[in-house]
Design a binder for these strands. Structure first.
Length: 253
DNA sequence: ATGTCACAGTCCCTGTGA
């Protein structure tokens, strides 16, 4: 089973790239972030034509997350079940695997209220992970907006005092690992950066100025069956790319 | 630090978010 996570930065703007990528790669489960669509605009019909069932938690101008699956899709949950109005997490069960697609708040700046929201949001995610059914294989993938270690950042000195690399944010990722999840790409590639995001500005992609902020966090049952993980850098090239590349995990279930 | 992209509304430019 091939599971991918991809922040598409507007599914409306990205649909031609997303459609071509699905046809070319034929992944089984795709965790999408930043659809920036209402449910009314989401391409359910077009995806069905490609063989995918889909579930969307849409908002409109911002956020929006989705799960696509060609191996079955059920038990969909949207949000944490609290009063958060932002559409940032959706869960589903696909071929017996519990999957979540999440778009962690950006944080904006260390002294911004949005940074507090980010840490609170990650604490709620940890609670969800701790309360999972241990009998069910589990993966939460998405744009975490955190580079978990210095290896995940092209120049840590350029990020001093910035979000994405601060200790509280990294502690929040470690809390997910303490709850039993493993960062799949890093587990299989301990020494390669494996960046997944490059700023649109300053020719960052061609200069290698990237961050690894898109993660697949899997439980020990899935880790034991993992055969590969990689970043599809090709998707960051060409016409109208997202600023994120898909991160892929492969499992022999 | 910022050479970009996407969105909505003020609607063919500007402010906001990333």
């Amino acid at each position: 089973m091939i599971v991918a996570t991809w922040n598409v930065n507007s599914l409306t703007a990205r649909w031609p790239r997303v459609e071509a990528w699905l046809v070319e790669k034929n992944p089984d489960v795709v965790l999408i972030q930043e659809t920036k669509q209402t449910d009314a605009k989401f391409p359910f019909t077009e995806l069905a034509r490609l063989g995918y069932e889909s579930a969307h938690y849409g908002q409109g101008q911002w956020n929006g997350v989705a799960v696509l699956s060609r191996v079955g899709l059920g038990d969909v949950t949207r949000g944490f079940g609290d009063d958060d109005p932002e559409a940032r997490i959706i869960g589903a069960t696909c071929a017996g695997v519990r999957v979540y697609s999440c778009y962690v708040p950006n944080g904006r700046a260390l002294d911004d209220p949005h940074y507090v929201y980010k840490l609170q949001w990650l604490a709620k995610l940890a609670e969800l992970v701790e309360n999972r059914d241990p009998a069910q294989p589990f993966v939460v993938g998405g744009d975490f907006n955190v580079a978990p270690a210095d290896l995940d950042c092209y120049d840590p000195s350029a990020f001093e005092g910035a979000t994405h690399v601060s200790e509280p944010e990294r502690d929040a990722i470690r809390a997910l690992e303490s709850a039993g999840l493993v960062d799949l790409t890093r587990a299989l590639h301990p020494n390669e950066p494996c960046y997944s995001w490059w700023d649109y500005r300053n020719g960052a992609f061609h200069r290698g100025w990237g961050l690894r902020i898109d993660l697949l966090l899997v439980d020990s049952a899935l880790l034991a069956k993992a055969t590969d993980s990689h970043v599809d850098r090709e998707a960051r090239k060409g016409e109208k790319p997202s600023d994120h590349a898909p991160v892929i995990g492969e499992f022999n279930l």
